[in-house]
Design a protein around this nucleic acid. Sequence first.
DNA 1: TTGGAAAGTCAACAAGGCTGACATAAAATC
DNA 2: GATTTTATGTCAGCCTTGTTGACTTTCCAA
Lengths: 168, 168
Amino acid sequence: MAEGGAGPGGESLLFLTDEQLRKGIEAMFFAYRGFTADPDRILDNYAYGRAHHRALHFIHRSPGTTVNNLLGILGVTKQSLNRVLRTLIEDGLVESRVGRKDKRERHLFLTEKGAQLERELSDAQRARMRAAYRAAGPAAVAGFRQVLEAMMDPDLRRQYQTIKDTTS
Amino acid sequence: MAEGGAGPGGESLLFLTDEQLRKGIEAMFFAYRGFTADPDRILDNYAYGRAHHRALHFIHRSPGTTVNNLLGILGVTKQSLNRVLRTLIEDGLVESRVGRKDKRERHLFLTEKGAQLERELSDAQRARMRAAYRAAGPAAVAGFRQVLEAMMDPDLRRQYQTIKDTTS
DNA sequence: TTGGAAAGTCAACAAGGCTGACATAAAATC
DNA sequence: GATTTTATGTCAGCCTTGTTGACTTTCCAA
């Protein structure tokens, strides 16, 4: 895999020094901090954490998703997710409906209140992403997405693409 | 900032839909999971966590750095960092030397044992980064770095560039 | 020389991961 | 129809890694 380096579109062999790779690693580290900074600030005002944000994001993204689906996407245990979901449901941000076909399943939806918070969080995160995209330009954006996709675990990449295809 | 979009090298105005931005956000989320997966697996064998990895990385990166420097880079409280450093020092992975000029400061160095673990961790992380870079190609890599850099908080970007310049 | 600032340490608490054990209901299978 | 599997939820307890508050030692400047 990638051993000749001269695939379709590849320039030639890529010689990558440890130094170049280290810079990429640190770029990921620092950029991820920026990526989460704005939502984290907002969440502080509501006594919620990053875990709540992730749940809201993916419920917004796939309304009616089941708890089990969400577990697969988030990669946490059901106990961990349940703690977060319970507070969101108690606080009236998320609604849990028993499945019609399979009554064991719970389908998750954002309430109006939940959608509001999700919007506040994602507006902030999109604003930063938009600014970065504009600063870097369209070609850079394409490269950014390619490298990130190649960096995912195959299982996670499948999750990412499934979600991506569902709505694009 | 970036409001016209037609800066040097910019194609023209970038029209970015919420959908495009959401994909970028999810790409960051899933890619970061992959990014940390290999080191996390290794750390499990040693009863260390991601925080230990970060400390080892940046001490390796800047030998002799002070605790205070490290705090600025890692963005955690000194108490939080101290707990991690204490175990690394007790376990003989890190050496802490009292400053000669200012005896309040502690200068941090990896021991041979610490350097060994750091190498094991960064080898794994670099391998994934290398594979992703090769799969995506050189142009994509440049774009990847540009977008990440634009996504950082200005303070963090300065940290990143300081470190970058020190050794490139 | 004394008072404040800086660096580091200790103690205690909180969020959010984890495992394990168990309960319930519904679906699937034998 | 009985049994097993699946989906979900809950309780208890642990770990890592954040946090704040209080404290010591050291340095520096008024």
